[in-house]
C-alpha cells in the first residue's frame, strides 16, 4: 500500500488532521498524568538518600527531556523549511517554540526547588544548569527574532538559522554531567540500563509520556491557528465552516 506522505505536508490537510487528533492527545495525556502521579506519590517508596524530596524527579526529568527534544524537533522543522521551503515545516517550528520554552523554564524551576533542599542553593553556575539556561534563552531568542521580522517567510529563514546553530547546545546539556565536574547528579537512566526502583521508573515514564502527549496536543492546537493566520486569503480557508 502506498501512502502519500506529502499529502499531510499541505497545510489544508494537516489542519484537518491536527484538529481531529489534538483532543485524543489531550485526554490521554491527562489520564497518564494522573496514573504517573498516583504511582509516583502512593506506590513508589521513599528514596534512601534523598527522602521524599526525590519525588520532584517525576516532573523535573520529563520537563528536562522534553525541553531538549522539542528544541531538536523545532530545529529540524526549521531546517526543513529552510532547505525545501515548505510552509508547514516553518509553521511547526514556530508552534513548537513556546511549549519548548515553557518546559525549559519548568526544568529550571523544579531544579531550583530540588537544589535548595539537596545542595543548599537554588542556583549554582554549574555546567548542566548553565547550559539549560542557555537553552531557555535560545527559545526566547527564536521567538523574539521570528516576531521582530514582519515578512513571515524572511522571519522563518532568520529564526531557522538561529535554531540550527543553537542545536549545538543540546548535546552539551546532555553530556555536561560527564564532561565537567558538576554538582548536578549524573544520569540515572542510561542506555545500558538503570538501578532505579521499578515503581519509580513506571512513575517517571508515565510522566514522560504524559508530557509528550500534552506537548503534541498543545502544539497541534497552536499550529492550527498559525496555519489559518498565514494561509488567510486562500480558497480553502475561506471555505472552512468555522470561519463562516
Amino acid at each position: 500500500m502506498a501512502i502519500n506522505w506529502f499529502k499531510y505536508s499541505a497545510p489544508s490537510t494537516f489542519y484537518e488532521l491536527a484538529g481531529k487528533l489534538a483532543p485524543w492527545f489531550a485526554w490521554s495525556s491527562a489520564i497518564l498524568f494522573v496514573i504517573g502521579f498516583y504511582i509516583g506519590f502512593f506506590v513508589a517508596p521513599t528514596d534512601a538518600t534523598q527522602g521524599e524530596a526525590y519525588r520532584i524527579m517525576f516532573i523535573h526529568v520529563p520537563a528536562s527531556i522534553l525541553s531538549m527534544f522539542i528544541y531538536l524537533i523545532m530545529a529540524g522543522y526549521a531546517a526543513l523549511g529552510l532547505v525545501f521551503n515548505t510552509r508547514l515545516s516553518s509553521m511547526m517550528a514556530t508552534a513548537l517554540a513556546p511549549t519548548g520554552a515553557l518546559f525549559a523554564f519548568l526544568s529550571l524551576w523544579t531544579g531550583a526547588l530540588w537544589g535548595k533542599p539537596m545542595w543548599g542553593a537554588w542556583w549554582v553556575w554549574d555546567a548542566r544548569l548553565t547550559s539549560e539556561l542557555i537553552l531557555l534563552f535560545l527559545y526566547i531568542g527564536f521567538i523574539a527574532l521570528h516576531s521582530s521580522i514582519d515578512d513571515p517567510r524572511r522571519a522563518d529563514r532568520a529564526a531557522a538559522l538561529l535554531a540550527i546553530v543553537g542545536s549545538v547546545n543540546v548535546p552539551i546539556i546532555y553530556f555536561s554531567v560527564k564532561w565537567w565536574n558538576t554538582l548536578h547528579q549524573g544520569s540515572t537512566i542510561k542506555f545500558t540500563g538503570t538501578s532505579m526502583h521499578a515503581a519509580m521508573q513506571q512513575a517517571m515514564w508515565s510522566m514522560v509520556v504524559a508530557c509528550w502527549l500534552y506537548a503534541i496536543a498543545v502544539v497541534l492546537t497552536r499550529v492550527r491557528s498559525i496555519i489559518l493566520e498565514r494561509e488567510r486569503g486562500t480558497q480553502w480557508v475561506s471555505e472552512l465552516e468555522e470561519t463562516k
Binding site: F37, T46, G51, E52, A53, R55, I56, I59, H60, A63, L102, F105, L106, W109, T110, L113, W114, K116, P117, Y214
Partner: peptide
C-alpha cells in the same frame, strides 16, 4: 507535609499544573 519537603515538591508540581 512530605516530611518537610512539601514546599519544594508542591512548588514544583504547582507550577507544572499552572503552566499546563
Amino acid at each position: 507535609a512530605m516530611n518537610g519537603y512539601g514546599f519544594y515538591i508542591w512548588g514544583s508540581y504547582g507550577l507544572a499544573l499552572l503552566i499546563a
